[in-house]
């Protein structure tokens, strides 16, 4: 379904990298960002701000929406020297995480995109996929294989 969306949704690539950055560990992004950092000229449009987002669910998974509880989120916005604006909305309370996400988001809309993709996004994606696959493989190992015992006659 995601692949179909990317064909018709022009925002799909940006959606994908912002989601990846929001869900990746802050320390991992900080490490990759420090290694890459080209010190792009930028100004801060919105200083990092910690807040809450009310997470919603649906009654019976499919019915009316209800409020489940909040999660902590940090956001920031930056503007590059060339005028490109980047936004970061990330899980947790790390201001660096939000700021670095906003900078990466801005750079991904410029000619630096290929380098940023290779230096930061690709390793994050790989780490995420590996972590997900490992967890799925552990879950699969706890899957029950039923076998039927023949009881009685006939």
């Amino acid at each position: 379904m995601n692949m179909m969306n990317s064909e018709i949704d022009p925002n799909a690539p940006r959606k994908s990298w912002l989601g990846l950055l929001a869900k990746s560990p802050a320390a991992e992004i900080a490490r990759l960002w420090t290694a890459y950092d080209t010190h792009p000229d930028h100004s801060i449009l919105r200083a990092p701000e910690i807040g809450g987002v009310m997470v919603r669910g649906r009654a019976g998974a499919v019915g009316a929406a209800f409020n489940l509880g909040e999660m902590s989120v940090t956001r920031a916005s930056v503007k590059l020297g060339c005028g490109t604006v980047g936004h970061g909305y990330v899980q947790g309370r790390s201001k660096d995480h939000a700021l670095q996400t906003a900078l990466i988001d801005a750079l991904m809309q410029t000619e630096a995109a290929t380098q940023v993709e290779a230096a930061i996004l690709a390793p994050l994606r790989k780490a995420r996929d590996t972590a997900k696959a490992t967890r799925a493989a552990k879950a699969a190992a706890t899957k029950v294989d039923f076998f039927t015992m023949v009881r009685g006659e006939d």
């Binding site: 910690i50 809450g52 009310m54 909305y89």
Partner: peptide, 12 residues
């Protein structure tokens, strides 16, 4: 915490 908004209902 300032409230940034509400999420879309999670897809369980």
């Amino acid at each position: 915490l300032p409230r940034f908004g509400g999420s879309n209902p999670v897809d369980t």
